[in-house]
Simulated assay, not measured.
Amino acid sequence: MTSLQGSSILILGATGGLGRHLARQLADAGAQLTLSARSMTDLEALGIPGQLVPADLTDPAAARTLVATAVTTHGRLDGVVNAAGAVAFGAVADTSDETIEALWEINALAPMRMLRAAIPSLRDSADEGRAPFVLTLSGVVSEHPTNGIGAYSAVKSALAAYVQVAAREVRKSGIRVIDARPGHTETALSRHPIAGETPKFPTGLEPAAVAQRIIAAIVGDERDLPSSAFSDVPAATSQMVPTDEAETSTGAHPAVTMAAQMPLEAAESAPVGSAVGSAPAPAAD
Rank of each mutant, 00 (worst) to 15 (best):
G19C: 05
A83W: 08
S3K: 07
V92S: 06
D221Q: 02
A93F: 04
D124W: 04
P280C: 03
Q164M: 00
A118L: 01
M262N: 14
H184V: 14
V134G: 06
L135C: 05
A281W: 00
A131K: 10
N82F: 15
A255E: 15
A117Q: 01
I119T: 08
P120N: 07
V219L: 00
A188S: 13
S7T: 15
E143I: 06
S157N: 03
L225F: 04
A167L: 07
S7L: 04
P193H: 11
R64D: 09
S228K: 10
E101L: 09
Y162C: 01
Q25V: 07
N82P: 01
G47P: 12
R24F: 08
G251A: 03
A86G: 02
P280S: 04
P120R: 13
A208V: 10
A14L: 09
E222D: 09
Q5I: 05
E265T: 14
A167P: 00
A63W: 11
L264I: 13
G17H: 06
A37T: 09
H253V: 02
G90N: 09
T257Y: 02
A235G: 10
S274C: 00
A91R: 13
S39D: 12
A154I: 03
P202G: 15
D179T: 03
A108W: 00
S249E: 10
F230I: 08
A246N: 06
A86W: 00
F201S: 14
D224A: 09
A235M: 13
G17F: 12
A216I: 00
G79L: 01
G30T: 08
T185R: 11
E247T: 14
E197Q: 04
T99F: 12
K156H: 14
A211S: 09
V170W: 12
G13C: 02
A255R: 10
G6S: 06
T187V: 14
L66R: 07
S142C: 05
G273D: 00
A281M: 06
F89Q: 09
Y152M: 06
S153N: 02
A252T: 03
D179S: 08
R38Q: 06
P54N: 03
G50E: 01
L115Q: 03
A235W: 13
A154Q: 02
A281F: 00
A252L: 07
A216G: 11
I194S: 05
A63L: 09
T185M: 12
A255F: 10
L103V: 01
A161M: 08
A55L: 02
R24E: 10
M40L: 15
Q164H: 13
G50K: 05
Q212P: 01
E222M: 02
A84Q: 11
A151D: 05
T237S: 15
Q261H: 15
A167G: 07
D232T: 15
A45R: 15
Q5M: 09
A55W: 08
A246H: 12
G85L: 10
G16Y: 11
I9F: 06
A55D: 03
G30E: 07
R130E: 11
A151L: 03
T58W: 07
I194E: 01
T2R: 14
L26G: 07
A131W: 07
R176N: 14
P280W: 00
M1N: 05
V219E: 14
T2K: 03
G251D: 12
